[in-house]
Amino acid sequence: MDLPRLETILSRYEGESWDLIPVLQDIQDSYSYLPKDELQVVSERLNVPLTQIYSVATFFKMFSLIPKGKHQIKVCLGTTCHLKGGGRVVESLSHRLGVEVGYTTKDMQFTLETVGCLGSCAQAPVMMVDDKYYGRSTVDKVPKILKLYK
């Protein structure tokens, strides 16, 4: 366990039970997942039962109990993106990367996810790699976008 790293995160908060979600978010951002040992420490420090942490970690889409890849691909499946072929973009990515939605490639480079709406509906279909948005990312553009991260 990387205790100093966890301490840095915990030191940003006052250690109250309602700090749970922000603390977990910081851990997720920093580690790319929620390691079990770290959660045990969080439970003690925030005085929150481990059951509650497990509940929260499995309820919210942002959290993962297994490590995510270096790059997070989020394909928008909002209404407009759905109508404009967002589903096919997911299939194309899944086929090219060899992973199902929600999983990470063996080389730990990419995690493929879908999201309810990214809010760039006018440019559907939209996808996001890490913090960068790609508009009108139809199936034929997928290889070009992936190339930028390989």
């Binding site: 059951t51 509650q52 942490i53 499995t58 309820f59």
Partner: peptide, 16 residues
Amino acid sequence: ISMKGRTPDKQVATPF
């Protein structure tokens, strides 16, 4: 014990 997940795979579970 607590609830794990939401609708599609919600269940009562022990942590992890």
